[in-house]
Amino acid sequence: MFEARLNNATTLKKILDAIKDLLNEGTFDCSDSGIQLQAMDNSHVSLVSLTLRSDGFDKFRCDRNLSMGMNLGSMAKILKCANNDDTVTIKAQDNADTVTFMFESQNQEKVSDYEMKLMNLDQEHLGIPETDYSCVVRMPAMEFARICRDLAQFSESVVICCTKEGVKFSASGDVGSANVKLAQTFNVDKEEEAIVIEMQEPVVLTFACRYLNAFTKATPLSNQVQLSMSADVPLVVEYRIAELGHIRYYLAPKIED
């Protein structure tokens, strides 16, 4: 028996919004420690790694490890049927070929359940090596989303250049060029407005705007985003989900021919 409950559906809706543009389907691996999903997009350029800890749920029970392959488009249709303040419970029997989403209104007067067929997904799991990144940047998630959106107008690619002084995002194309420089902040009132740079070595890396923009769909989940970079290895873009876990996106850099 598997059962996981969240007291409002908003978080789950936001999580799904954050992954459904990159992935058509995914396997949710459930164990007593929580729920994990790891999947690459079709082109094998980016990877989504979602971790939801069991202690972050309002109720969590997982008697046996369970892998549930879900079509994310279908899951999105079902979650649209939930009000934001509904309690959502995900339920499945052991070895079941369906999963049930139950939504309960706050006053308990409306209870709906939606059963969805599970899929057998043949997904490759990737071993992600532990890496000491040369640069780790923490910045407001809204600011990162804004920069990715703005620069995508100028080029398919954005160059991220990180030094001790700050981080620079650049794009150039037919229209011209664009540069956005952010300096490290000191003495900001609110932690969520801070820009913090931890640098061992400066890095310059080039990434496809399209994927960065897809990652920023996670912005509603977190005030801050963390970018971890080293030369010639995939970028990690991490959004923490308060009291529940995190979503990490990995993106392969563009490389010289």
Binding site: T206, A252, I255
Partner: peptide, 14 residues
């Protein structure tokens, strides 16, 4: 010129 890398080149399939 640059080409888009793939994650398979960086991460091992388990």
């Amino acid at each position: 010129t640059q080409t888009q890398g793939r994650l398979d080149n960086f991460f091992k399939v388990l």
